[in-house]
Structure formats: C-alpha cells, structure tokens
Simulated assay, not measured.
Amino acid sequence: MEDAKPLPNLSLEEQRVLGSLIEKSRTTPDYYPMTLNSLTAACNQKSARNPVVNYDEETVTLTLDSLKIKGLISKATGGSSRVIKYKHNLGIVYPLIPSELSILCLLLLRGPLTPGEINSNAGKLYEFDSIEEVLDQLIKLSEGEPAFVKQLPKKTGQKESRFIHLLGEQSEIQETNQQAPETTIFQPNEALENRILRLEKEVEDLKEMVNLLMDK
C-alpha cells in the first residue's frame, strides 16, 4: 500500500494565501480563480481573519511562488482575460472533501477554533447540519493518515477544546486573541460587538466586490 503523502510545513504567509484561495473558491466562485490584486485584498481582510495582516503584492507573489513549488497552487490560463489568476490544489494533492476543506480553511484563516466556532463561522464555505457533524469531521481529520488537525488540551476558563491544523507553524497571536474573551473580567456588550462585526464584514465584502469588478 502506498504511503500517505506527508503534510507540508507552511509558513504563516503561505497559510494565509492558501486559506484565502480556498475561502474565495467557495464564497465567490464567479470571481475564482483570483488575480494577484484580489488575492492580496482577501489576505488583508479585517473580518474573518486572525491575526489581521497587511501584505503587499510582492509578499503575496513570493508566497505564491513557494506554494507553487510545493504543488499547492497553480496558475489559471485561458478565457478572455490576460490577467494571471491563481487557484489552490489542496483538494487535488490530498483526498479532501468540501466539508474537510472548509474546516481547514477556517483554521488557516482564524487560528484555533472549537467545533461550535467552526459551525457558526462556516457561512458560505459549507453548511454543516450540526456541531456533531463538525466534530465527526474533526475526528476524521485528526485520526487519518496523515492527520490534518489535532485537539488542544483545555486551558483554565475554557468550556470547549479547540482544534488546530497541522499544515505548519501556529501564530501565538492567534491563540492569545482566541483566549482573551474568556479571561477578560469586563465583557463588551455582545449585541453591539456582533453588530460592529457584521458592519465590518459588509464593508470588506463591498471592497472585495469593487476589487473583483476592477479585475474583470
């Protein structure tokens, strides 16, 4: 029996670029594959990202080159546009189904998450029937060969265990930010915070749509 293909050790920049490509392939399929401009904007989104970054196009280009060497992205050619576009190959290199790709996408873009957080943040990526389905997928991803995720031990104050991907290094900022709401004594108004997050997401969606239209 053929040995399972080992997982790549992705840098934080590679994780962000790959995660953004996976996300947009699901959420904006009409504008996928992606141009360098739209991909850079996707990496730098302020919503649905942890941590928030500010990559320039040179950083994204160099990262695309390294991902191409690893076989995880490719250039898309053809059609009426002469602009170079990019697509991910993660689901080709490894036998991953849409639900599994969606979970990995969230972990790449947001850092450690609980099954409940994955279920609530999946959005247009994949419609899970329940948290139990998410947990089933996480168990499958953690027990396969190779394992794509692992469960972190609970820390003081945490109600649920979080999961991380095993595709490369983890940012300390990600885990610290995820823990902060549980250790903060004075919590902000949840309804107001959710409204702000929704407004930020709407602004980012509008910016993304403008960038995509300019690329057409």
Rank of each mutant, 00 (worst) to 15 (best):
L109D: 00
R26Q: 10
D30F: 06
E2R: 09
S102V: 04
A41V: 11
I22A: 14
E127H: 14
N9F: 03
P33I: 07
V83Q: 13
L7F: 02
N44W: 11
V149Y: 04
P51K: 07
P146C: 12
T77L: 14
L67Y: 07
K159Y: 12
K140R: 12
R162H: 05
K155W: 07
L21S: 02
T35R: 11
K207F: 00
F128Y: 14
I118C: 11
K150A: 10
F163T: 07
S120K: 12
N194K: 15
G78D: 00
I92F: 11
I97W: 05
S47F: 04
D56K: 02
G91L: 04
P6F: 09
K140W: 01
F148I: 01
F186W: 13
S66C: 09
L166S: 03
T61M: 11
P98A: 11
I196K: 13
N44V: 13
S142V: 04
N50I: 10
S47L: 06
Q45D: 12
V149I: 08
L106Q: 10
E100F: 01
T156Q: 10
G111P: 08
E132A: 05
V149S: 05
R195L: 15
I131F: 01
H165D: 05
V60W: 07
T156H: 01
S120T: 08
P112H: 12
S171N: 09
S66T: 13
E117T: 07
L107Q: 01
Y126R: 07
K207A: 02
C105V: 05
E127K: 14
P98L: 10
F186L: 15
P153T: 06
L62N: 15
Q178I: 10
R195I: 08
S80K: 13
V60E: 06
E204M: 10
K216F: 13
P8Q: 08
L206A: 09
